[in-house]
């Protein structure tokens, strides 16, 4: 599909907005619907979209394999790290009240970081599965 001009232009226009929407879903998840999981899926979907239009090798250059493979455990580590941060600051595991002087602020901070962790892991896993599937045959653009 590399040669279709309309698709390429539209994709280039759309992708920044898709990523922006993912960030909105991520950080607005405390106020409206959404959260880490959905944001991670949207990020992965953006890259999948890019891979379908511009070909898998190009997408692999933009989001390389090592990055995807690092993202998978990194998210879990961020999540678990928030738990340990609570532990070191004198609370229980995954206790957010101690993360800030004001307990409500601490809660918000804790939730923010664990949502980041969830998003990183989900995006990494979805992308990795897509790469593994799409990389098995010929690349998608043929």
């Amino acid at each position: 599909m590399k040669r279709l001009l309309v698709l390429r232009v539209i994709a280039k226009e759309l992708i920044p907005f898709m990523l922006l929407f993912a960030l909105y879903v991520q950080f607005h998840g405390e106020l409206g619907p959404g959260g880490g999981f959905q944001a991670g899926v949207i990020i992965a979907a953006t890259v999948v979209f890019y891979a379908i239009i511009f070909g898998l090798p190009t997408a692999r250059k933009v989001v390389p394999d090592w990055l995807v493979e690092t993202m998978m455990p990194l998210g879990v580590l961020v999540y678990a790290g928030v738990g340990f941060a609570g532990l070191f600051l004198g609370g229980n595991y995954l206790d957010y009240f101690v993360l800030d002087a004001d307990p409500v602020h601490g809660q918000e901070r804790g939730v923010f970081w664990i949502e980041v962790g969830v998003a990183i892991t989900v995006a990494g896993v979805m992308l990795k599965i897509f790469y593994m599937f799409a990389g098995r045959g010929r690349s998608l653009d043929e």
Partner: peptide, 18 residues
């Protein structure tokens, strides 16, 4: 009041059921 998060789904998911 406890978490400062208006979306209860997120509050339960991330905080109470961390």
């Amino acid at each position: 009041p406890e978490t400062g998060i208006p979306n209860i789904v997120t509050a339960v998911l991330a905080s109470y059921r961390g």
